[in-house]
Write a protein that binds this DNA or RNA. Structure first.
Lengths: 219, 219
DNA sequence: CTCCTTTTGTTGAAAATTCAACAGACTTTC
DNA sequence: GAAAGTCTGTTGAATTTTCAACAAAAGGAG
């Protein structure tokens, strides 16, 4: 586990926990590590939701795919970020989303019941973990609000611009590198890919933005 | 505060806390109660996000209104449910949503910093409150996923049917009473009101559902 | 009961999205 | 380096949504 220490120290789940304690804590939590190839389905919709995952390297996406095969990308997590925690903490019986490897990645799994239900004296940091989960979930809720602010717009142009402006504000720069290719961006914005490409073309012509692949510049 | 005891006992924030402790705890938390008329803006977008609210009577909605006046309804809370907790827990400086009174209502406010930052030995139930907040936020995240499952559909018909089927499953009945009027349902589904009315009309004609005001029956 | 306000359903036209198909650019693999 | 596969931009037609306007229905106030 030691090789992942630098990543884990940045994980919001372990805020306020010294690295010496972190390493002794991991076995108690039943932490395991797995590696996945790109596109691999790490957690499948409909299966049990016992574990939360921590991205150690690479990145993962949470996606919903409906009856007709339409995909929605809900979020993307990179190194030291958590996924699946909401479902494990809410103790639902089956996952409402899938989690897939966006690129080759390594993931640490922790059985959430070890955090939620273990005797609270077993480990002095137990309460800290619950506090950290609470903080993390509050932050994730904010991200959902932002996503809804984006997808609630009625036109492709407005969705794209709202998304880019939010990212720009977050990065503090007019230059934005997005973690999506065109199809993924369309699945995040919930619009048609070809219509999205066309709209990006128009915005370029109008001098509102510049774009090369997944790098955007607001003008 | 005593008159609200029955409501507060059902509030997820106070799970596992006996009523005798609940009453002594409220002053420590700095709880205050206010009443509002229908349509009143209880919390305004852009203002501070220090407090979480508990609905004591009536109901409230969290809404986002964009630059052009388009409204999105994000959620609705009725008696003993919590609102604003995500923003207070995430300690954001300004609210990204407004909360309005959907009908005349009474609300209890608690300064969230009293839960997050008070010395953890001050009150034996402090940890329980944080645990409860964590649970509540996990549940809210699930609701957001459901909402996204609904609004990610591309047509008014699909959005409406997905919403009704989810509600039907939740209630365990083909008969559904929704907490929205037509305009509000449109703002929740993120579609045009008149188009929604037309679509409901078509679905009736096709014998797929029956509908009287805010009562729906799936056939 | 009547008047006034709000809500709902309908309509048609304009605007936007979706869909399918294709060609060029770019990557990856062997 | 060639071939296969993937990603992206473009097109036009069909579908759907949005928008504005209006009238009927329902609800509330006096």
């Amino acid at each position: 586990m030691k090789k992942y220490l630098e990543i884990l120290k940045k994980c919001p789940l372990f805020d306020g926990i010294g690295e010496e304690h972190l390493l002794t804590m991991l076995p108690c939590l039943g932490a395991t590590v797995s590696a996945y190839d790109k596109k691999y389905t790490i957690l499948m919709e409909g299966t049990a939701a016992k574990y939360l995952g921590i991205v150690l390297s690479g990145s993962v996406q949470t996606v919903q795919v409906d009856f007709y095969g339409n995909r929605s990308i809900l979020s993307e997590m990179t190194a030291s970020q958590i996924f699946g925690e909401a479902f494990a903490c809410a103790e639902v019986s089956s996952l409402p989303v899938s989690v897939i490897a966006n690129e080759p990645c390594e993931v640490m799994f922790i059985d959430c019941s070890h955090i939620l239900h273990t005797c609270s004296n077993h480990c002095g940091f137990h309460q800290q973990l619950i506090y950290n989960l609470m903080k993390d979930l509050a932050t994730k809720t904010l991200l959902f609000h932002q996503r809804i602010e984006v997808t609630s717009k009625r036109t492709t142009r407005e969705k794209l611009m709202t998304y880019l402006l939010l990212q720009s504000k977050k990065e503090g720069s007019r230059k934005i590198v997005i973690p999506f290719d065109r199809q993924e961006l369309a699945d995040y914005l919930e619009v048609d890919r070809s219509g999205l490409s066309a709209e990006i073309g128009k915005l370029k012509k109008e001098g509102i933005l510049d774009c090369d692949k997944n790098r955007f510049v607001l003008l």
